[in-house]
């Protein structure tokens, strides 16, 4: 399995797109921190980068990569290799490259300007989001044979998690404004890795005071170590469950 991961990572590095992504993150993060006099403001700008750009690049790059390596997968399948290890190697290869890109591109700048626990948590969440969206991309890519459909599905999934989901939540809030929704909202936020990450980071940044009573309830739960660990666990589930389903589908797929 290690050998296949090696070839996947080499192949990804050769395509130079990940390199461009790293440079982009590097330029953006250093300029954000040098433009703002206050590092907390810089972190807020980085937050948006992490919550939108990182998942977008992760999901689209991974989907396209899986489709483009259909030849490679076919070649490997006729060799004495387990299907499971081929699929997991692709996942690991993509995750490793995108995580490295994020850590070198954004992580170093964040830790340089904000060498605190908060900085570490933000980097950790960026890494988790990269991996989660690789896993969702693998599910999108295995679900349909057609490349255009698969990439479309990946973009739709990103739109859903990044934008549509929040709209739905707002709709829900307005419809049921007469009821106490603070506790159910915590459950709902677990349904979207981007939302969950946003809450985790915002609570660390002390702007949660702006979120009113819901913010206080959130702080009560997510602010504690227990709540934080639970959320990290949920994020890990978000990485593992789509991967598990895609693996099951891949095992039965005809090539």
């Amino acid at each position: 399995m290690g050998k296949v991961i090696k070839y996947v990572v080499l192949d990804i590095l050769r395509s130079k797109i990940v390199l461009a992504y790293t440079l982009f993150l590097l330029v953006v993060s250093f300029s954000v921190f040098s433009l703002e006099d206050n590092n907390a403001k810089g972190l807020l700008s980085m937050l948006n980068l992490i919550l939108f750009i990182v998942p977008l690049i992760s999901i689209i790059f991974s989907t396209i990569y899986i489709y483009n390596s259909s030849e490679f997968i076919e070649l490997l399948l006729s060799q004495p290799l387990k299907r499971k290890s081929i699929w997991l190697s692709l996942f690991s290869g993509l995750s490793i490259s995108l995580t490295l890109a994020f850590v070198f591109g954004a992580g170093i700048a964040i830790l340089f300007f904000e060498p605190t626990v908060t900085g570490c948590i933000i980097v950790l969440i960026g890494v988790l989001l990269s991996i989660i969206f690789v896993s969702i991309a693998m599910l999108a890519a295995v679900a349909t044979r057609d490349k255009a459909k698969g990439i479309g599905l990946a973009i739709l999934l990103w739109l859903y998690f990044a934008l549509v989901f929040d709209g739905l939540v707002l709709l829900l809030l307005f419809q049921f404004a007469d009821y106490p929704l603070e506790k159910p909202m915590m459950l709902v936020s677990a349904l979207n890795p981007i939302d969950l990450s946003r809450i985790l980071i915002l609570l660390r940044l002390d702007v949660s005071a702006l979120m009113g009573y819901t913010g206080a309830v959130f702080k009560d739960f997510f602010g504690t170590t227990y709540g934080f660990n639970i959320s990290l666990l949920i994020l890990c589930c978000w990485a593992l469950i789509p991967l598990g389903i895609s693996l099951k589908k891949f095992n039965k797929k005809d090539l």
């Binding site: 192949d11 395509s15 490679f72 006729s78 060799q79």
Partner: peptide, 30 residues
């Protein structure tokens, strides 16, 4: 599958590898 040598009808290989790398990779894997 380690006892099978397979030659596909239409050989499809990763585009941005060269012949030497493909042969090297297969030797490495098997």
């Amino acid at each position: 599958r380690s006892q099978i040598g397979y030659m596909p009808q239409i050989g499809r290989y990763p585009d941005n590898m060269n012949i030497g790398q493909i042969i090297g990779m297969m030797k490495d894997i098997r």
